[in-house]
Simulated assay, not measured.
Amino acid sequence: MQLYSDRLQPSIHPAYARIICAYFAREGMDAETFLNPTNINWDDLQNDTQFISFEQFSRIASRSVQVSQKPWIALELAKTIQTGHHSSLGFGVVVSKNLKQAIEFITTFMGTRQKIFSPEMTEEPGGLKITMVPNVTLLHDEEFVCCALFGVLYRAVVTITGLPIKNWLLSMTYEKPDWAVEYDASMPGNQFLFGQKNISVFIPNEYLNVISLTHEPGAFQLATSQCERIKKQQEMGEDIALRVRCLLLNSESNFMGLNEVADNLSMSTRTLMRKLKASETSYQEILDDVRKEFAIWYLTKTSMTVEEISDSLGYQEASNFSRTFKRWVAKRRRSLEVS
Rank of each mutant, 00 (worst) to 15 (best):
R113C: 06
R113V: 15
R113N: 12
Q114Y: 13
Q114R: 13
K115W: 08
F117D: 12
S118C: 09
E120Q: 13
T122D: 14
E123R: 12
E124Y: 10
E124V: 15
E124P: 09
P125V: 08
P125D: 14
G126T: 08
G127S: 10
G127F: 06
L128D: 08
I130H: 08
T131K: 03
T131F: 03
P134M: 10
P134L: 12
P134I: 15
P134S: 13
P134F: 10
N135E: 15
V136D: 03
D141P: 01
E142K: 11
F144M: 03
C146Q: 04
L149A: 03
F150R: 07
G151K: 11
G151W: 03
V152A: 00
V152N: 10
R155I: 10
A156R: 10
I160S: 02
T161W: 00
G162Y: 04
P164F: 05
P164D: 12
K166T: 15
K166W: 00
L169D: 09
L169G: 09
S171L: 10
S171W: 00
M172H: 03
Y174G: 04
P177F: 09
P177N: 01
D178W: 01
D178H: 04
W179Q: 12
W179E: 11
A180F: 14
A180W: 13
V181W: 07
V181A: 15
A185M: 01
A185P: 06
A185I: 05
S186F: 12
P188L: 01
P188Y: 00
G189W: 09
G189I: 10
Q191L: 05
Q191Y: 13
F192N: 02
F192H: 00
F192I: 03
L193F: 06
L193H: 12
L193D: 05
L193M: 05
F194I: 00
F194H: 04
F194T: 06
G195V: 12
G195K: 04
N198M: 00
I199R: 07
S200T: 11
S200V: 12
V201W: 02
F202L: 04
N205D: 13
N205Y: 07
E206L: 02
E206P: 02
Y207C: 04
Y207D: 03
N209I: 02
N209Y: 10
